[in-house]
Design a protein around this nucleic acid. Structure first.
Lengths: 243, 243
DNA sequence: ACCTGAACACCGTTCAAGT
DNA sequence: ACCTGAACACCGTTCAAGT
């Protein structure tokens, strides 16, 4: 009766009808989990509500609409990642950058298709303070290598785009092969459909067909190596920035 | 009455009820046009049927389903492009590669979101003979620079991914800004949401806020320059391939 | 052979009503 | 304050019937 009830009595109940109370964050987490487990196409207001044991209408008490839900999941997804330690010393920056790309790739691969989903739903990601800290750390690392600040920012953007593009365009197909494809049709690189018919005049593809295939990881390593060498040309004393 | 009717009489009618007769190709072209004009989200069986003046059911006489339709549009889209002339001479390969990237970017920009749509619908692109010829030409160009065949193929893949990733993740947002965004919110690079609050400890982003913004084209040029320099490190006599 | 119209099972979202 | 159930306007796809 007094104005000083116990804090517990003031707090919102944590359960309701045997079910954990929904919150904006728990709804977003559930969406992110569902995307990771079943893929982005399976995220519907109705399927998420069913997993949470509520009616679809109940979700609208915590998110404005589906776009808001996807944006929320994307934000939580970004909060879950921090860049590894980055060392700009002349003999350490290359392995640092490679480790950064490897860890970023592993993170995005845990939710393949997430970025593409945000893109198609016009969701703008990356407003969270965590993301600001991450970008600041990477830009600082690239600046310490000797890049002008504007180029350090540009290189940061390209590094992230390289990884995200690789995961969304390459890993996503290999990690979750579409049901309609024959097993080996995408695991091989180059894929079988790039193997020319005998007799066609495609000399370089013909020669390629006899080489051992490139694995996903080899292709990724090649992409990161290209980036590292491109940056090295701007970092090395006497390196030329433009051709 | 004779068995030698005129060829015109044997041919399928080109019109029906005042409307051009549908064909698989004309349906695919209409889909590609609709995507370019109104964006990928606006492509539905019903909207396409309405534009063609038929019922939605009629489309199923020419395509198996929506995935098949999108694959068909993607195939026609690829047929519309051919790489420019590529000159591997030591003083010409850099401008050649830059021109290739510029033209590929311009092509993909004509149908922003097309690649992402194909991706989310599990459509595998690029089986058409035209695409084989294009890839063969690019791999041949990179081989002539001095890259081993396996690396030439890998570099070809990364070049295309760089351009497609840039168009889908960067140009798409600038060229068709989502309705819910304030005008300057995406045209500026770095975007306003990367500008830290005063007093926060993000020194590199803080410094960046005072620099003139990077235009889309400058960012693209930077990305291509990185690629060119990365390749140069593998092409130059004495260039090191790995760090 | 090719089309239409009605129908089915989905989807996001909203309304009116419950507790 | 938070929920449910019914409803609306969409969607892809299919069925039965027309010409």
């Amino acid at each position: 009766m007094s104005s000083s009830e116990t804090p517990a009595a003031r707090r919102r109940p944590t359960h309701r009808k045997g079910r954990a109370t929904l919150t904006r964050e728990s709804v977003g987490r559930a969406a992110l989990d569902l995307i990771g487990r079943r893929g982005p196409a399976e995220l519907t207001m109705r399927s998420l509500a069913a997993e949470l044991g509520v009616s679809p209408r109940a979700l609208y008490n915590y998110v404005e609409d589906r776009r808001d839900l996807i944006g929320l999941a994307a934000e939580l997804f970004e909060q879950d990642w921090h860049p590894p330690k980055l060392d700009p010393a002349p003999d350490r920056w290359r392995p640092s950058l490679r480790a950064l790309c490897d860890e970023l790739r592993a993170h995005y691969r845990r939710h393949p298709g997430m970025t593409t989903l945000a893109l198609t739903e016009d969701v703008t990601m990356a407003r969270h303070p965590t993301m600001l800290r991450n970008v600041d750390a990477i830009v600082g690392f690239l600046t310490a290598l000797g890049l002008p600040p504007a180029d350090a920012y540009r290189a940061c953007v390209e590094t992230i785009r390289l990884v995200v593009g690789f995961v969304e365009f390459h890993d996503a197909l290999h990690d979750r092969p579409p049901a309609h494809l024959a097993p080996g049709e995408l695991t091989e690189t180059p894929p079988p459909w790039l193997r020319p018919e005998p007799g066609t005049d495609l000399p370089h593809l013909t020669r390629l067909a006899d080489l051992p295939p490139t694995s996903q990881d080899e292709q990724f390593t090649f992409a990161v190596d290209l980036l590292v060498d491109g940056l090295a040309a701007r970092v090395r004393p006497g390196g030329r920035a433009r051709g």
